[in-house]
């Protein structure tokens, strides 16, 4: 069969329309990406069969598996380190990302495990190009805390790269600390400090 101009036009139109449709269907909103992530994490934290110190390793592994799906640690590490990110090689970057992720796991997942009665409300979301902010409030025993998730679009999903609590940005906080350290010390010194910090959490009951 010979392709006429009309055929080509129809086929072309079909491809254009379907590509638009697939984008519209496949990419969930930032809130839709975040909701199942937080729910899954809360389910693991409140799961009685995973509670207690004896299940810590298993519980942490599960939480981090979920977190790895929803957080973009590379984007986070990039921003946390800032300019020096360009001055280090890929191996150093991977090492830094791993250490920083471990620190967040030690600090914040450990803290999160202490809460059990949290109610998360999704209030608002705003998208600007490939970035988005999802605004939530967490209620825990009568205390209401506004938490904003800063997300970046990655293919067909949105991933978190910063958390902002009452104007205090997680990334910004570490960024300033690292900047202050790197003013006096070199990158290897910073890596050593990260390793030492992570070591302080070992064997600690949380």
């Amino acid at each position: 069969m010979r392709m006429t101009g009309k055929h080509l036009f129809v086929v072309g139109l079909f491809f254009i329309v379907s590509s638009y449709l697939s984008v519209a269907v496949a990419v969930p909103s930032p809130t839709e990406s975040l909701k199942p992530l937080l729910n899954e994490m809360m389910t693991i934290i409140t799961d009685p069969s995973l509670a207690g110190e004896e299940h810590k390793k298993e519980r942490r592994a599960k939480i981090m598996a979920v977190a790895n799906q929803g957080f973009n640690w590379t984007e986070m590490s990039k921003r946390v380190l800032g300019k020096p990110w360009h001055e280090i090689n890929q191996k150093q970057r991977d090492n830094f990302e791993q250490l920083f992720t471990k620190l967040l796991e030690n600090a914040y997942v450990g803290k999160l495990e202490g809460y059990s009665s949290q109610v998360i409300t999704f209030n608002d979301e705003r998208v600007k190009e490939e970035k988005a902010v999802v605004s939530t409030t967490i209620e825990d025993n009568g205390v209401i805390l506004p938490v904003h998730y800063i997300m970046i679009q990655q293919n067909t999903t949105w991933k978190v790269y910063d958390i902002n609590i009452e104007g205090v940005s997680l990334v910004q906080n570490y960024r300033e600390q690292f900047r202050s350290i790197l003013r006096k010390d070199n990158f290897d010194g910073l890596v050593k400090m990260l390793e030492e910090k992570n070591a302080t959490f070992d064997g600690e009951g949380s």
């Binding site: 600090a107 009452e166 104007g167 205090v168 940005s169 906080n173 600390q177 202050s180 350290i181």
Partner: peptide, 27 residues
């Protein structure tokens, strides 16, 4: 104690928390 436990430089961390939260309130 949490701030101290999570921070590599608690002084800088506290400064940042203070300034950010104050700016947030003023804004």
């Amino acid at each position: 104690e949490d701030l101290k436990a999570y921070a590599l430089d608690p002084y800088v961390s506290m400064r940042q928390v203070y300034l950010d939260s104050r700016r947030n309130r003023v804004d």
